[in-house]
Nucleic acid binder design. Structure first.
Lengths: 331, 331
DNA sequence: CTGTTTTTTGCAACCGGTTGCAAAATTTTC
DNA sequence: GAAAATTTTGCAACCGGTTGCAAAAAACAG
């Protein structure tokens, strides 16, 4: 069916190796044969089979991309950036959707079977153990949006969530809030834990009183909405720090539904600065997570591991910053 | 490095074919050898290389998934559903992000090189010519969310956009609107054209006056917002039909920004019924596109083509329905 | 023009599986 | 228990490329 190396070789009147060499980077072929081969290939509409090449070279140019949150639109930005960054480097993403049902070890197995060249775990909710499984299986792995550890045993690219939580506390204080609430992401997520911890610690330090504290059950709109309703039962807070923009939007809608206006009756600060945070209906003051830097950096990292797999584990942290919009009262 | 067939065979004391057979569906092996092989494989931690298998069987279990809109959160739902549906069928998505810069023929080439078993073009904006390229290259292809044609030459799964546009007109009439505006998706998209055409036709038939008509430049929030501002310069309409929910949200925010309230001053009807349409800040009345049915059906279709590639081109259309929320005045 | 060095080329083995075929082993039949 | 029918097994060729190695060709030096 498809045109093969052999046919091209015959037509060009050269050996199969000659054809192979004209199609592999940095191999030595004379200008003359290269020309002959290229003509023959063009005539026949030949393009080398990546499968066969992969088998021979033990390289697939496939990068496993593991994600487990398809509810949060941030991830669409994430996919967009990943697919583009990989495509530019002549790599392909093999997308794995890790639902709660799927057995983690199964997907390790799976990606091993496809012999992906590397894996990017793009999730702030997956436990580190997950990325480890790949390290153990000897496949280059980087955990993007993962939990920062001072003595990492795998590559981590992300932010210092603890510090960013503290930043939220400072921002609330700057806006002269005294009593606040914390509405975090799912408690099982390391990112949610760390943001909460940093927020709590710093709040204590600067005399900001946390009157309520609650973890939503997912990084999702509905979860934020529902958690906010609960929070509203005992409304002694003047502002809420939400561990995620999407949760924050749900929370804001719940607050408005209860007849509160923002920021007059209650202030909000979110986390991520997703595209939608700038929408007029929300115009969310939020902590910006440098998504695109994290993604580019994690791709670069995984690429460099292709050549030097034994690279020492590295942590790359990017700074977050406050984006002021209109959900906190003017200072 | 990785454990191979041969090593398992040696350890189990059988031939390589025996090992191969215990790992391929429907091959004949005795219970006894199967047991021996399975034990050896377990001991060694063997899992067959899909690359090698692909080379031998000429099947990769890879499905190319082509998308070109990573701005619209609907596509996150789309990716979620696709990845799950494929995973359940033991197939993997190879994601191609078709930005405006990428050369279409290059990605055809690319997917051919990876010898994907099939391709799903998931886009309502790509021209049909695109899916054709795959048909020509002899790879099973279905165009999901594609333009309906009565004499299709490739498989199409989607909706009758023309009819759905008409449905929008009827809904506006039902709510006693007389003068309306049309705010479509990008004019180059067949879906936008068809929705517009159906809307216009039906409006004329039932005596609904279309006072303005405009195409946004993308299926995106900002585009909707911007187009609405333009529309507002000459506000003779009482309601707007937006060719997409996201555009509609942008438009609503623009209207609110201009001091209008919804639905008192101006009504809105969207298209898609994406998750966010139910959000309280919008609570959008919209035409529901049966995304999940379309996706499941297109996966089934592509799967069935794997076995019978010569299947006659088929069109599968799913009905849309109106979801009433609060952006049209009560009838 | 010859001898040396460098570049190009083809051979053949290999990557890790699958599969048609015939021989061997097992089961069934009488 | 032998013959026939059926199932299981191993051999060997194949899928479509890459690559180390040695021979051949080309380039260079004197």
């Amino acid at each position: 069916m498809a045109v093969t190396l052999k046919e091209v070789a015959e037509r060009a009147g050269v050996s199969r190796s000659a054809v192979s060499r004209t199609f592999t980077q940095g191999a030595s072929v004379s200008a003359k044969t290269r020309k002959k081969v290229e003509k023959a290939a063009r005539d026949l509409g030949y393009s080398p089979s990546l499968i066969a090449r992969s088998l021979a070279t033990n390289r697939t140019k496939l990068i496993g991309l593991i994600a487990n949150n398809f509810q949060n639109p941030v991830f669409l930005e994430v996919f967009d950036l990943y697919t583009r960054a990989l495509q530019e480097r002549n790599l392909r993403p093999l997308l794995v959707n890790l639902t709660d049902q799927t057995d983690p070890s199964a997907s390790v197995q799976l990606l091993k079977q496809y012999s992906v060249d590397g894996v990017i775990v793009a999730s702030s909710t997956l436990p580190p153990l997950f990325a480890h499984a790949f390290k153990e299986a000897q496949v280059p792995v980087v955990h993007a949006f993962g939990r920062f550890a001072s003595t990492p045993d795998i590559h981590i690219v992300g932010i210092d969530n603890e510090h960013c939580g503290a930043l939220a506390a400072e921002t609330l204080q700057k806006h002269r809030y005294k009593r606040v609430a914390f509405l975090g992401g799912p408690q099982s997520a390391t990112s949610a834990q760390d943001r909460g911890a940093g927020f709590t610690r710093r709040a204590k330090e600067i005399g900001l009183e946390i009157v309520s504290s609650l973890y939503a059950d997912a990084y999702a709109y509905n979860s934020g909405q529902q958690a906010m309703r609960e929070l509203l039962e005992d409304r002694r807070f003047e502002a809420v720090f939400c561990g995620d923009d999407l949760i924050c939007m749900g929370a804001m809608d719940a607050a408005r539904d209860a007849g509160l206006s923002i920021p007059q009756d209650v202030g909000f600060i979110g986390f991520n600065d997703m595209n939608m945070a700038a929408w007029q209906a929300y115009s969310l003051t939020t902590i910006r997570q440098p998504t695109s830097e994290i993604i580019l950096s994690s791709v670069d990292l995984v690429v460099s591991m292709l050549d030097t797999p034994e690279r020492a584990p590295e942590v790359r942290l990017f700074p977050c910053s406050v984006v002021e919009r209109s959900t906190l009262r003017p200072v």
